[in-house]
């Protein structure tokens, strides 16, 4: 049982370290507490669902992991109003449900398959904006959207 007792403190330490990596106090938004802006990921899979409501659009992509198992990714975008003002429209999503897309995002800090998305590449080849700048590399600012 000793090895089991060691796992919990390690996990909490890891999670705490991830959470403590959050931003300096002038950050505008919860993004950097929930997501890791120092990493960018690209997820390719099938777009399955969209929620086009405030405060944030959400959409789901089913992608295969390294073992070939299908995992569901949850992506958070900006407010649909802000997204629309970049030229992306709701039908860019709804007309592509069931089709293959690639999402550029920063991953969640809790280890689950989620991300704060910046863009989505659609089957017609267009890459459209769905969120503000999320990936910041070494810098530590965050977006309000």
């Amino acid at each position: 049982m000793k090895h089991v007792k060691r796992v919990i403190p390690v996990t909490l330490l890891l999670l705490f370290a991830l959470a403590a990596n959050a931003l300096p106090i002038f950050a505008h938004h919860g993004f950097q507490a929930e997501y890791d802006g120092s990493k960018v990921i690209y997820i390719t899979g099938t777009l399955t669902k969209l929620e086009w409501e405030n405060p944030h659009a959400y959409f789901w992509v089913e992608a295969k992991d390294a073992t070939g198992k299908v995992t569901t990714w949850t992506f958070e975008g900006a407010s649909p109003i802000a997204v629309k003002r970049t030229g992306t429209v709701r039908t860019d999503f709804t007309s592509n449900i069931g089709k293959t897309v690639t999402v550029r995002a920063i991953p969640g800090k809790d280890g689950t398959t989620k991300g704060a998305a910046e863009t989505i590449k659609l089957p017609d080849g267009r890459e459209v904006v769905v969120g503000g700048k999320r990936f910041f590399g070494d810098s530590k600012s965050g977006g309000e959207y």
Binding site: T11, I41, A63, G111, F135
Partner: peptide, 24 residues
């Protein structure tokens, strides 16, 4: 959870990690 975190951090998920260049 530990495995998942290490998996994501290692960037070996089917999700390729990007080099960070802006794609748009």
């Amino acid at each position: 959870s530990v495995f998942a975190i290490l998996h994501i951090l290692s960037g070996s998920a089917r999700a390729q990690s990007g080099t960070g260049q802006v794609s748009v």
